[in-house]
Amino acid sequence: MKPGSLLARHVAPVPTSRRWLVPMAWFILLLMLSAGMGQLEWLFRLVEPDVREVIYRRAGFFALLGQHVMVVGVASLLAVLLGVGGAIAVTRPAGRDFLPLVSQLASIGQTFPPVAVLALAVPALGFGTLPIVVALLLYGLLPIVRNTLAGIDGIDPDVHEAARGMGMTAGEVLRQVELPLAAPVIIAGIRTSVTVNIATAALGATVGASNLGDPIIAGIVNGNTAYIVQGALLIGLLAITVDSVFERLQPASQA
């Protein structure tokens, strides 16, 4: 028996096919709508009967979806690396003095509206994708940092004592005990961060970052509600798809 195996939790397994059925259904609907938006012209004509063009055609929806996912993915990956890594560092004995500082820095990133971050970032970074990545990174740190701290600090001290009593090193305690037990709480924070940033990323269209925010901004500028609905619908479906994936990952992390 491996050290720390007595600390593992066991739950009844859920059939994989049923676990991922709902996320797959949302994902397929997202792809179908991205590919077939032009076929719904008759429907959007009901929304905007008086405009000449009701389907956004300046860029393909598939391309916009891919760019949206890329921006959110890069920002979220950086937020996870910095947030989880920073939270772990300040929960170690050598880093405890920096815990308030890390918490405050993460909170400051969330208190700044993304629009304000973009306004400050554009003069330094220029127009394009980089400013929105920075804004999403700062905006997404807080839930990840807070949940990682809560997950690790919430572990019963007796568990640590039992692990050390079994001869586990500090690194082994972290990898085999703390992170597995804190994983559900950490994943919940990542889930919140990513889901919120999927919607927030639409603001990138205001600084030249092409994504699903393009039709929304174009619709606002041109007074075309159909454009706004198309962008918002795809962003909403993307958020639901990703959120349903995380919902399936959380129970799995407790196994």
Rank of each mutant, 00 (worst) to 15 (best):
191 R>I: 05
102 V>K: 01
125 L>D: 03
151 G>Q: 06
170 A>H: 14
145 V>W: 10
97 D>H: 15
133 V>H: 06
108 I>S: 01
182 A>Y: 00
189 G>D: 03
161 E>M: 12
172 E>T: 02
136 L>W: 05
167 G>I: 04
179 L>S: 05
113 P>R: 13
108 I>G: 00
166 M>Q: 14
99 L>A: 14
124 A>L: 13
176 Q>S: 14
176 Q>I: 06
107 S>T: 13
159 V>G: 04
109 G>L: 04
99 L>H: 11
191 R>E: 04
132 I>F: 14
145 V>K: 08
189 G>T: 01
168 M>N: 06
163 A>P: 03
120 L>E: 07
142 L>I: 07
143 P>D: 07
152 I>F: 02
183 A>N: 00
181 L>W: 01
186 I>L: 05
149 L>E: 05
117 V>Q: 02
94 A>H: 13
150 A>G: 12
163 A>W: 02
154 G>T: 09
104 Q>T: 13
138 L>D: 02
108 I>C: 01
122 V>D: 06
194 V>M: 11
148 T>I: 06
107 S>K: 07
167 G>P: 06
151 G>L: 02
128 G>L: 12
143 P>L: 09
112 F>Q: 09
181 L>A: 08
180 P>E: 11
149 L>I: 12
172 E>F: 06
187 I>C: 05
192 T>K: 00
179 L>C: 09
118 L>C: 07
96 R>Y: 10
121 A>V: 11
138 L>V: 04
162 A>W: 06
165 G>F: 08
137 L>E: 01
97 D>C: 09
177 V>F: 01
158 D>F: 07
153 D>R: 15
146 R>T: 04
157 P>G: 10
152 I>M: 06
179 L>T: 07
171 G>D: 03
187 I>S: 00
124 A>T: 12
146 R>E: 12
94 A>N: 09
127 F>I: 15
188 A>C: 07
162 A>E: 05
172 E>D: 12
173 V>Q: 11
180 P>V: 09
127 F>Q: 09
101 L>Y: 13
147 N>C: 03
137 L>K: 01
159 V>H: 07
161 E>S: 14
194 V>G: 00
106 A>R: 08
195 T>K: 02
111 T>C: 07
143 P>H: 08
149 L>M: 02
142 L>F: 11
132 I>V: 15
167 G>V: 11
102 V>H: 07
170 A>P: 05
140 G>I: 09
123 P>C: 09
151 G>V: 04
102 V>W: 07
152 I>W: 02
125 L>K: 04
128 G>T: 12
140 G>C: 11
192 T>V: 15
112 F>Y: 14
113 P>I: 14
98 F>A: 15
129 T>H: 12
161 E>Y: 10
150 A>Q: 08
141 L>R: 03
120 L>M: 15
130 L>N: 00
99 L>Q: 14
115 V>K: 06
154 G>L: 08
107 S>M: 12
133 V>A: 01
182 A>P: 00
191 R>W: 02
175 R>L: 15
127 F>C: 04
127 F>W: 13
155 I>V: 13
101 L>D: 04
171 G>V: 05
103 S>T: 14
141 L>M: 05
184 P>E: 03
162 A>H: 10
123 P>L: 10
164 R>P: 01
132 I>S: 04
168 M>A: 10
142 L>M: 08
190 I>E: 02
188 A>Q: 01
174 L>C: 01
